[in-house]
Design a protein around this nucleic acid. Structure first.
Lengths: 334, 334
DNA sequence: ATGAAAGCGCTAACAA
DNA sequence: TTGTTAGCGCTTTCAT
């Protein structure tokens, strides 16, 4: 393997100025004549010098890296948000370490420990479990999608979430209007605020139509994926075959449901109407194409990155809570 | 924000031994009495000490981090491979920096530069563009899925790929057996060896049945996704409406095709038979469920991680090329 | 078994 | 405008 990277010291020797001056031109701070600048830059160019971030980070106690905690990168929705964040952060000169927790508290803890020993500057939490509040709070953090449980200390963190509750209302509306009369919500763990809020909105929406609480069935899947959705709905249908309008708090859950209905020979939307949540790409391709609530992936990415970087730059926070609008995408399942 | 991490120096003071000894017990090398060990560990525990990886990395010139270059994390196949790699690497005590290139050469170059200035120990390339051979070769690297173009220097790198060619043969077989007579391959850029190999295998398979080369249509999509597949096949069908057996070198391309056929009112597999490649999760859920060639995601992850770490540990390579078997998953489209 | 000390590459006072 | 120097937290000789 070829020669390793040269160091600032060698540049200093090569250019005949001190390391301090070299550092100054690299970071473009302090003063230096345009002539030395030219000479130094020349050498840097010529040798393809790249500053050692470890040394810099050690010295400044700040590495240009932020950690992203995400439950399941395999879920296209999270993948897209993560990707957007990464792109935006990269433009702002930060690298990212993406950590997948698989929704496991313990793994999350280990990741946090690792990130901290890696001296990351900040953290972005996408729908996490928030292991070890103490640990987490030592680092500037932005929360996306899911409220952290430390709500007591308002103002100490930034939260960016979709308007989940209104999403639920839209779903209720849409289901009702397309003729459903017996309702269910297929969802995931209620400790996850986004899911809880969606269902709350769904309830509120139905209430406006006079549907009594007691007639709204709620099924919680073990995982937020198709298989679990399939499984859970099979159980629910066997108890309540009359259900004909279902709000799935995640598109992936809806895919499982769709699969089940196909097997059972029920037709969509004639026998059963469905609304999902997320609008991931398969939702516009599967057959029937899924009616769903779209979240703004781009806004998550842009806001998340910008907000975290402002915090890191010590800028005063404009706000510490963002509620992003969602949108109903009407397709074939309603 | 609470107190920062304590350092080895403070532990030294607290425990009454020198920093050198503290370092020894932390890294479990050199000698120390079991008594000092106990005392030091006690303090570490008590203060929740975590070593500063930057300092360690600066000193040893080796950070326990590896970079993963991936074209599109939004593609479930890549997401899964990346995740497996990350999990395995984590167990081997390495963190990962996942870098998405969006198949853009320039972005790839910038990521490599960043990773190197971050002093990563190694690199895993998943189906990359291999920007700047010189740069890349300075760091131990494992290539997954796609052959690097520097094949001249066999032995200087490790390549792990699926048996793409045989996958193509299986596809040809399956299509033929299910009654197709007019064939096409819907694929992506041929500079990507995996795609080229799949098509080569497809050709070979058909040749065995006496299908002349000239009758096998090959359509290359602009991107490896559903929309591009849809687009490209629309063009091909307008020229060759007789096509009734299509091998898509990626499941996502097949989804676009499926969408198109639905629109055109052609039925699958009666009018047109389809075989995909990857077996991502939607392939077993969409309607009709996609017949496809499954790659071994787990093997990619396990082999990739283990091989890279062996290299980093200076172990001699057992082999520098792995060809993983693929498997035909027969479903509704053939 | 343990300590002293040098040094990894860089930044930031402080001096000149 | 530029240079000297200390020091970030750690590992690793070399002594003892």
């Amino acid at each position: 393997m070829p020669k390793r990277n040269i160091s600032i010291k060698e540049i200093s020797a090569l250019s005949g100025v001190s390391v301090a001056t070299v550092s100054r031109v690299i970071n473009q701070n302090g003063r230096f004549s345009s002539e030395t600048e030219k000479r130094v830059k020349q050498i840097i160019e010529q040798y393809g010098y790249q500053p050692n971030q470890l040394a810099r980070g050690l010295r400044t106690n700040k590495l240009q890296v932020v950690g992203i905690i995400v439950p399941d990168i395999t879920n296209e929705f999270f993948a897209k948000v993560t990707l957007e964040l990464q792109n935006n952060l990269f433009e702002l000169n930060y690298s990212t370490m993406i950590c997948n927790t698989n929704e496991e508290y313990d793994i999350e803890r280990r990741h946090i420990t690792m990130l901290k020993s890696q001296q990351v500057s900040g953290l972005i939490y996408i729908s996490g479990d928030f292991a070890d509040e103490q640990q987490v709070l030592q680092v500037p953090t932005v929360y996306i999608d899911r409220k952290p449980p430390f709500s007591s200390r308002e103002g100490e963190f930034v939260l960016i979430e979709s308007d989940n509750e209104n999403g639920g209302v839209y779903a209720a509306d849409e289901l009702m209007k397309s003729g459903a009369r017996h309702f269910a919500a297929l969802t995931y763990r209620f400790e996850i605020s986004s899911h809880a809020d969606r269902v709350a909105g769904f309830r509120r929406g139905l209430k406006a139509y006079g549907v009594p609480e007691s007639e709204i069935h709620v099924a919680q899947a073990v995982q937020a994926d198709a298989e679990s959705g399939y499984q859970r709905m099979m159980e629910l249908f066997s108890e309540h075959p009359e259900i004909d309008g279902i709000f799935c708090t995640t598109d992936r859950l809806a895919y499982g449901l769709l699969d089940l209905l196909r097997e059972q020979g029920k037709s969509v939307p004639e026998d059963v109407r469905i609304v999902g949540f997320d609008d991931i790409s398969y939702s516009s391709m599967c057959s029937p194409r899924l009616t769903t609530i779209r979240q703004s992936v781009n806004s998550f990415g842009l806001l998340g990155a910008n907000t975290l970087v402002s915090i890191l730059d010590g800028a005063p926070l404009e706000r510490n809570r963002y509620l992003l609008p969602v949108e109903l995408i009407r397709r074939d399942t309603t």
